[in-house]
Design a binder for these strands. Structure first.
Length: 372
DNA sequence: ATGTGC
């Protein structure tokens, strides 16, 4: 699309898909209205996991006649994949110690003839930080028998859930734009989209490579993903740019909506229309900022209870601060988010999963003397 | 969420 499109002078529409019982921070709704006031903006759809981000809301699908890279953010192509993952024996305590180091990049020599988008190999096979994780989980409840059967999923099956993105590549692409244009639109939308699409492909490849690393280390049989959808992206749809920031494609696609590292996640079938930006939520949504979660978590939780959760799962995380920032209590209840999607007819739950072992970042060796 | 600077 060219930059010749007429620029609207009135604000775009804003619609938030959350029930009154779902507390959405007013600052996140304010951010939706700030985005709606941008030149060319047509519609902003807030998901039930809407929360404030840096400059733009997280958990939103934003449609406009011009492309704004900052609405996608730095982690272009971030998404969640679910792989069938067959193991002979499932002993979480044992598996947790055998997880590979997903902070260390793969040796390029091990990549063979894999075609790498953007020729960026530095961080391939690494999970990153923040809310990213790699989780061995068990299918708990089957909520739609026929759909689950179609995906080959049954209660008790183990799956590997991989939530990660394009690491430094996406950050580099956003920065290249921001250094020249700040929060303004892309001067050359097609050039941005080409780089963006590379980052999306890199993200898909990265999630696959991590699944292969974990399967090799745990001696598991890895299947093709039942879903692998991005929640940070932009695409041309119906002649407009549809930006998704913390919003998964919900137009006839199956997506995993992540709970927390100690609660259920839900694989859902999305059927969202234009008013919802053809999107569904991407997770439970933060209830507390990272700073608040750290401050309050240190009072409320011990490291031990965050490393072994109330559902009996183990969290591999050598970073204490990250453990507190990502505490389940820092997030909203995933059941509320799913309930809101169902109430607004945006999605149908297919299965729920429960974590067994969640990898966040490499464990530190216990210090001599027993100090923690 | 990120790389980078304090």
């Amino acid at each position: 699309m060219s930059q010749q499109n007429p620029v609207s002078t009135t604000s775009a529409t804003v619609q938030v898909f959350a029930s009154p019982g779902s507390w959405i921070e007013s600052s996140a709704v304010d951010q939706c209205h700030q985005v709606a006031a941008l030149d060319g903006m047509i519609h902003v759809a807030g998901m039930p996991d809407l929360h404030p981000g840096k400059g733009a809301p997280i958990g939103a699908a934003m449609t406009s006649s011009v492309l704004y890279p900052f609405l996608v953010g730095s982690d272009i192509g971030c998404g969640i994949a679910v792989f069938p993952f067959r193991l002979k024996r499932v002993v979480p305590e044992r598996l947790a110690t055998r997880f590979p180091d997903l902070d260390a990049p793969l040796d390029p020599a091990d990549l063979g003839d894999v075609e790498i988008p953007a020729a960026y190999t530095d961080q391939l096979g690494t999970v990153g930080r923040g809310n990213h994780f790699v989780e061995l989980a068990r299918v708990d409840a089957v909520l739609d028998d026929r759909h689950a059967a179609r995906l080959g999923l049954a209660a008790g099956d183990t799956v590997l859930i991989v939530h990660s993105g394009s690491r430094g590549l996406g950050e580099r692409i956003l920065r290249a734009h921001t250094e020249v244009h700040g929060a303004g639109p892309a001067a050359d939308a097609d050039a941005y989209l080409a780089a963006h699409d590379d980052a999306v492909r890199w993200g898909h490849l990265n999630r696959r490579l991590m699944a292969e690393r974990v399967a090799a280390a745990l001696g598991a049989e890895l299947g093709d993903p039942v879903t692998d959808e991005c929640h940070n992206s932009v695409r041309v749809r119906d002649g407009s740019y549809l930006h998704r920031k913390g919003a998964a494609p919900g137009d006839g696609r199956d997506v995993l909506i992540a709970g927390t590292r100690g609660t259920h996640s839900f694989l859902v079938a999305g059927h969202a229309g234009a008013e919802a930006g053809h999107s569904v939520a991407h997770g439970a949504g933060r209830k507390m900022s990272r700073a608040d979660a750290l401050r309050r978590g240190k009072v409320k939780h011990t490291v031990e209870e965050l490393r072994r959760t109330t559902v009996g799962s183990l969290v591999v995380c050598g970073d204490r601060q990250l453990l507190f920032e990502e505490a389940p209590t820092a997030y909203k209840r995933i059941e509320q988010v799913i309930g809101d999607l169902v109430a607004h007819r945006l999605a149908t739950p297919v299965v729920s999963t429960l974590p067994l072992v969640t990898y966040k970042t490499a464990d530190v060796a216990p210090r001599r003397g027993g100090r923690r």
